[in-house]
Amino acid sequence: MIAQLSGKLAVCDLTEVVVDVHGVGYAVTVPLSTFDKMPLLGEPVTLLIHTHVREDAIILFGFVSKEERELFRLLIEHVSGIGPRLALNVLSCMSVNGFCGAITDGDLKSLAKISGVGKRTAERMVVELRDKVTAVSPAAAFGGAGADGTTAPGALPRDAQDAIAALGTLGFKHDVATKVVQKLCDDAGKQPLGSEALIRKALMILNS
């Protein structure tokens, strides 16, 4: 099984990157927490890999830190009903410390805000992981491990804030919508997009 990839970053999308290792491109699915830490295209990159084998495919999931990969594995191996995609949503919506702290505190409200996680799934997470998350994040043993570190809406232009609010009314989680809109604003640079354009582009990404 592939455990690590080191090469040059050839492609970098919100949910998938391609690592060029001596001329061979490896497609790796990543959470937003890893995407946020990617270097510029063409620069060296190292990803810790979880190799997921199905009957019809071999899928590589990549992470920038050991803690992210450990939490991903805890979720898919110890919580019934959670597969790789939902585990990625967890890492995309909360930091490792933030999630582990919420598990330790039994903070069902925060956990249920994660895209795809309802009250029952949040309850299963707490029951199954409460005695395991301190191995991933020792700080979780003291509770209140911290927020996920996403950009505060007030730091974004008004059009971006309006787009995030609109995406929220369409059912998308606030933290995920914020990260997507922030990325679109960063890419636009000195030619800012209006709220309608941001919403259309964000929907294309979120529904892809």
Rank of each mutant, 00 (worst) to 15 (best):
1 M>Q: 09
1 M>C: 06
2 I>P: 00
2 I>S: 00
2 I>C: 01
2 I>N: 00
4 Q>E: 15
6 S>N: 10
7 G>S: 06
15 T>A: 07
18 V>Y: 01
18 V>G: 10
20 D>N: 14
20 D>G: 06
22 H>I: 07
22 H>E: 14
23 G>C: 05
23 G>E: 05
25 G>S: 10
25 G>L: 09
27 A>Y: 05
28 V>N: 02
28 V>Q: 02
29 T>I: 09
34 T>H: 00
36 D>I: 03
38 M>H: 05
43 E>R: 15
43 E>H: 15
46 T>A: 11
46 T>N: 05
47 L>H: 02
48 L>N: 08
49 I>D: 02
49 I>F: 02
50 H>K: 09
53 V>H: 01
60 L>G: 01
61 F>Y: 07
63 F>W: 01
64 V>C: 13
66 K>Q: 14
67 E>F: 05
68 E>C: 03
68 E>F: 01
70 E>Q: 13
71 L>F: 03
72 F>S: 03
73 R>S: 03
75 L>E: 07
75 L>K: 05
77 E>Y: 00
82 I>W: 05
82 I>F: 04
84 P>S: 03
86 L>D: 09
88 L>T: 06
90 V>K: 01
90 V>G: 01
91 L>R: 00
92 S>L: 00
93 C>I: 06
95 S>Y: 05
96 V>F: 10
97 N>F: 08
99 F>G: 05
101 G>C: 09
106 G>N: 08
107 D>V: 10
109 K>Y: 10
109 K>I: 12
110 S>Y: 05
111 L>G: 11
111 L>Q: 01
112 A>Q: 11
114 I>N: 04
114 I>G: 02
115 S>A: 03
116 G>F: 04
116 G>K: 02
121 T>D: 11
121 T>G: 13
121 T>M: 14
124 R>I: 07
126 V>F: 12
126 V>W: 07
127 V>W: 08
130 R>V: 14
130 R>T: 13
130 R>W: 11
134 T>L: 11
137 S>Y: 06
137 S>E: 10
139 A>F: 10
140 A>E: 13
143 G>Y: 12
143 G>A: 09
144 G>N: 15
146 G>I: 11
146 G>R: 09
147 A>V: 10
148 D>I: 02
151 T>K: 12
153 P>C: 04
154 G>T: 13
154 G>M: 14
158 R>T: 15
159 D>W: 03
165 A>T: 15
165 A>C: 07
165 A>V: 14
166 A>S: 15
172 F>D: 02
173 K>Q: 12
173 K>I: 01
174 H>Q: 14
175 D>N: 14
177 A>M: 06
178 T>R: 02
180 V>L: 07
182 Q>C: 10
182 Q>G: 03
182 Q>S: 13
183 K>I: 04
184 L>H: 02
185 C>S: 09
187 D>K: 15
188 A>F: 04
189 G>T: 09
189 G>P: 11
189 G>I: 08
190 K>V: 04
190 K>H: 03
191 Q>K: 04
195 S>E: 13
198 L>F: 08
199 I>S: 11
203 L>E: 11
206 L>V: 06
207 N>R: 13
207 N>K: 11
208 S>V: 09
